[in-house]
């Protein structure tokens, strides 16, 4: 028995253990297709516990899709997603819903329930999943709203909120059940600089003070680089670059550099595929 327990396997097993304890989310050989289009082609990603990990990439690379795969809303064609040691797509519906209670998600436009006011929106997950008394719910909601600085806006309806405020309310709702992880879907898109600054501060602070793990999907290089502990750059279904913001900024990869600096022409062509210009004009 012990003869087969070689050095190699021992190292492999210990790596597995380490991966489990260090990383809250592990993605292995994930392949996802939408019809003919391959969105992800056997990608591997690790999201360490307690850190802010960013996924970056041009529009249309399926960043939101990745979050939906982690949350179990979509099913991969191949590969698996482990969250806290559990295979998300092997879980039954009940277990999946149980897991989701410990995952907060911030949608691109907040996804607040339009028929409820700010207070009730934050109270919604608490009311749905706990049997707490009304006074307890009130305290909890006010604490969460205070954390995002909107305790005074509790009576407003979502229609009266600015985009940035709606996202902050949604953030308060996402942390309502004290999740172990928050998924941010394009948190900075379309926001003014001040709101961006507020959101950057909130994401970092919440992550550190509540001991959560954060996954930020974004294409805003500046803001993301200031909060991320680790970044992945995805393009055309593959990981083309990874590392801390500093190491990435010194990358030699042309494609990663083009994305980070926003150069209009590079490996990602400025022109849509066409025949030669002069020939096209003269034909």
């Amino acid at each position: 028995m012990h003869r087969f327990y070689t050095e190699k396997t021992r190292r492999f097993v210990s790596q597995m253990d380490q991966a489990d304890t260090e990383c809250l989310v592990t993605i292995r050989d994930l392949t996802f297709r939408r019809g003919e289009r391959v969105i992800f082609d056997r990608i591997n990603l690790d999201f360490p516990r307690g850190k802010v990990t960013a996924i970056m990439g041009p529009s249309g690379t399926g960043k939101t899709t990745l979050l939906q795969l982690i949350g179990g809303q979509l099913r991969p064609d191949e590969g698996k997603v482990l969250v806290d040691g559990r295979n998300v797509h092997g879980l039954g519906l009940k277990a999946l819903y149980e897991l989701r209670k410990s995952i907060g998600m911030l949608f691109q436009n907040g996804a607040l329930l339009t028929d409820l006011n700010v207070f009730e929106n934050v109270a919604f997950p608490i009311r749905e999943h706990t049997q707490l008394s009304e006074s307890m719910i009130r305290k909890l909601v006010l604490m969460k709203l205070h954390a995002v600085g909107l305790r005074g806006a509790r009576e407003l309806t979502p229609a009266k909120l600015s985009g940035g405020m709606a996202r902050r309310v949604a953030l308060a709702r996402a942390i309502a059940l004290d999740p172990m992880m928050i998924l941010y879907d394009e948190p900075f898109t379309g926001q003014d600089p001040i709101t961006k600054g507020v959101l950057v501060k909130l994401i970092r602070e919440l992550n550190d003070s509540l001991g959560m793990t954060s996954i930020v999907v974004s294409h805003d290089v500046q803001e993301t680089a200031t909060i991320a502990d680790r970044m992945y750059v995805i393009s055309e279904g593959r990981v083309i670059g990874e590392g801390t913001p500093e190491t990435l900024s010194r990358t030699t990869s042309e494609r990663v550099r083009q994305f980070l600096t926003g150069a209009p022409d590079g490996p990602e062509r400025f022109h849509y595929e066409a025949i030669d210009y002069t020939r096209d004009l003269l034909s």
Partner: peptide, 13 residues
């Protein structure tokens, strides 16, 4: 407006 999707992620069917 992703409210349904958001509800799913809050473990509410």
């Amino acid at each position: 407006t992703e409210q349904l999707s958001g509800m799913e992620m809050m473990a509410v069917d």
